[in-house]
């Protein structure tokens, strides 16, 4: 049974007239990896900075292990943070950077040296201790920044888009690395990102934010498979958001097709449906199809199509095959019943 480590209670934040966060409630389990995910300007960084103590919430409370830390100064919180710019101290060597937090804690020289060595081994860069920070590559800096934050054995590990400056391949490796480090240290972690793939990959719990409000907080697969609203469905894995109706048999009618998905809404009520691009399959027909293919690109293992149907542009993804429809073909659409999310309009 997991216990709650960090509790955020009704936190709001306004900058002048601008409301950055409204009434955020969140519980983070001990040892969990939580990703705050949302488009830019959604308030995710503000929330992280409130947790770190660099911003004061306008209202609301922060509890760590049940103790109120809302007004605790940031340097007394003991949270390790990795900044977007990494913020390695340029006038110190790698070892001095990592040992800085320990020095402040009055650890002996021997302790500092041992801990630095241990962390450099953990990040698999044992030979760079005496190098100046300026001599490191992007990926190395990344690891050093993470090691510096972990050196103080933080109660919480906070990361603000730490991987956004890396190129795609390196980012991929670092994600795996980060997850491995987090698990081996067992530290409760909150990471801010706008990259949904990164969030899906790292998180135990995904918190989707938009306009300063938590849209959904759930494990990634649940967020992906049953988004609670069209925004989440669209933001996580870009679904097709389509208008739908409840048919007379209380099933979902979509683009004139009865999907057979039963709905609880009264017959005739207008609804919205989110359908993943890979939950639609196309069949080429001679006539009487639902839509016309306007675009097709073969990406190797999969093909992407754009289908024009009843005034909507629908994105479809599926396995490539010789009989795949091409541009101009009439197609009928089939929906994977289990992978349609229905929302009241």
């Amino acid at each position: 049974m997991s216990e709650t480590h960090l509790t955020i209670e009704g936190v709001s934040k306004s900058f002048g007239d601008v409301r950055a966060l409204s009434n955020i409630d969140l519980k983070v389990d001990r040892g969990a990896f939580v990703c705050l995910l949302g488009p830019s300007g959604c308030g995710k960084t503000t929330l992280l900075r409130i947790i770190a103590g660099f911003e004061q919430a306008t209202s609301g409370k922060l509890l760590l292990d049940g103790a109120d830390i809302t007004d605790l100064a940031p340097h007394k919180r003991g949270f390790g943070m990795v900044f977007q710019s990494l913020a390695l101290f340029p006038h110190m060597s790698v070892a001095e950077n990592i040992a800085y937090g320990l020095k402040l804690r009055k650890a002996s020289r021997v302790e500092q040296k041992d801990r630095v060595e241990e962390l450099l081994n953990v990040i698999e860069l044992p030979h760079i201790a005496d190098r100046p920070v300026s001599a490191l590559s992007g990926g190395q800096r990344q690891r050093v920044a993470i090691a510096r934050a972990l050196a103080i054995q933080p109660k919480l590990f906070l990361l603000d888009e730490p991987l956004s400056a890396l190129d795609a391949k390196l980012r991929d490796n670092m994600q795996i690395e980060l997850r491995r480090l987090q698990q081996s240290f067992g530290v409760t972690t909150v990471l801010v990102t706008h990259d949904q793939t990164e969030a899906m990959m790292l998180a135990d719990e995904l918190v989707v934010l938009s306009d300063g409000v938590i849209q959904q907080a759930a494990p990634p697969s649940q967020v992906y498979q049953s988004p609670v609203n069209p925004f989440v469905a669209d933001f996580i894995g870009s679904a097709n958001i389509l208008p739908a109706v409840s048919t007379s048999q209380s099933t979902l009618g979509l683009l004139g097709v009865d999907t057979g998905v039963s709905v609880e809404h009264a017959p005739g009520s207008t609804l919205q449906a989110a359908v993943r691009s890979e939950a639609i399959s196309l069949r080429k027909v001679e006539s009487g199809g639902t839509g016309i293919v306007s675009f097709a690109r073969d990406l190797g293992p999969v093909t992407e199509w754009l289908v024009q149907a009843e005034g909507h542009e629908i994105r479809v993804r599926g396995a490539s095959s010789a009989v795949s429809p091409t541009v101009g073909d009439q197609v009928s659409l089939q929906f994977d019943q289990d992978r349609i999310s229905v929302f009241a309009s």
Partner: peptide
């Protein structure tokens, strides 16, 4: 961010 990094590691604002 450099100052904030020092503060997050336990330095008081003056120390940072």
């Amino acid at each position: 961010e450099l100052e904030e990094a020092a503060i997050s590691l336990g330095a008081s604002p003056m120390r940072a």
